[in-house]
């Protein structure tokens, strides 16, 4: 089919663009991948801009990311930023293996392309697993919080240090049980344990008596964990944006892994060897680097700033 077309073109000398005469010196497929990535850039920019907008609308009561994402699998205690730094490292690493696969594709070294593509898929899968763990941790919650009638979330503290509803109630938050506490139970516990107090939504520490009076007047329910309606860490919008933006990015990673698996099968079958070039690896590579690029921004605006 292609040969017939080529012959016809050569015969007629007709200036038709079927990827032969390339004004951008890039093939049709690569150009279209770039154009798609521009649209995706604008989508993610809009998400992050909306996040920043909401965040600076509620600067006093927006949760501190390092209070929220402070855990590391199999480790006890507080390790803010470490887990998400590891996830970033995994994604950068998988970008490197992807470039290597593209590079060996240019040299038509099939075995090395298979090796580095497989490692990229492994990296993507580990990243998705990490994100699932982080989501699980976020949904389950950690310290618990108390919602007020004005939708401000307050937290249990011990002096000037953040504590948890579980510690106050003498329960284990990680025993796999489904806990439920009422506001009255929390107030009773605060009366019985005067070393505990609360931290208000704008991060002021009240004394034990003030805390009890505040909760009597304002508290509406005890929040354990996070969902789209409310979350124990603070403003409900924080959870909404977290689920939406990291979810949308995670969906991109997931699609990327599927695409990588498809082209890996094609590489193994020798499709691109017969075609004479590994451009398909390069095109999916562009998409994969873009996913890494988006994560760099999500990492900054969700976890660092």
């Amino acid at each position: 089919m292609d040969e017939v077309l080529d012959e016809a073109l050569v015969k007629d000398h007709k200036p038709a663009w079927k990827g032969g005469d390339q004004p951008y010196e890039a093939s049709y497929g690569k150009l279209m991948m770039w154009f798609f990535l521009i649209t995706d850039t604008l989508t993610f920019s809009a998400f992050l801009a909306a996040y920043g907008f909401s965040r600076f609308k509620y600067p006093d009561i927006w949760p501190n990311p390092e209070d929220v994402f402070s855990h590391f699998p199999f480790l006890h205690g507080e390790h803010p930023l470490l887990f998400v730094a590891l996830m970033t490292f995994i994604l950068i690493m998988s970008s490197v293996t992807m470039v290597l696969a593209v590079n060996y594709g240019h040299k038509m070294q099939k075995k090395k392309v298979i090796l580095w593509l497989s490692l990229t898929i492994v990296g993507g899968a580990i990243f998705l697993g990490s994100q699932a763990w982080e989501w699980g941790h976020f949904i389950h919650g950690d310290k618990g919080g108390i919602n007020t009638k004005t939708e401000h979330v307050v937290h249990i503290a011990e002096g000037e240090k953040l504590s948890s509803v579980y510690a106050l109630m003498g329960a284990d938050g990680h025993d796999g049980m489904h806990h439920h506490f009422t506001v009255d139970q929390v107030i009773t516990s605060l009366e019985a344990n005067p070393q505990y107090n609360i931290r208000t939504a704008n991060r002021m520490y009240l004394t034990n008596e003030d805390a009890i009076a505040y909760l009597r007047e304002n508290a509406s329910e005890v929040l354990l964990g996070a969902n789209l309606k409310n979350n124990e860490y603070g403003h409900p919008l924080f959870a909404d944006y977290f689920f939406f933006i990291t979810g949308f990015h995670g969906f991109h990673v997931f699609s990327g892994v599927i695409l990588l698996i498809i082209i890996l099968i094609n590489v193994i079958k020798g499709t691109y060897e017969r075609r004479g070039h590994y451009e398909m690896v390069e095109k999916v590579g562009l998409y994969w680097h873009f996913v890494d690029l988006v994560w760099v921004f999500v990492f900054t605006f969700f976890y660092l700033v």
Partner: peptide, 12 residues
Amino acid sequence: IINQFMHLGHEK
């Protein structure tokens, strides 16, 4: 990432 990994620095 854009310049090196996505190779935009070497495009036209």
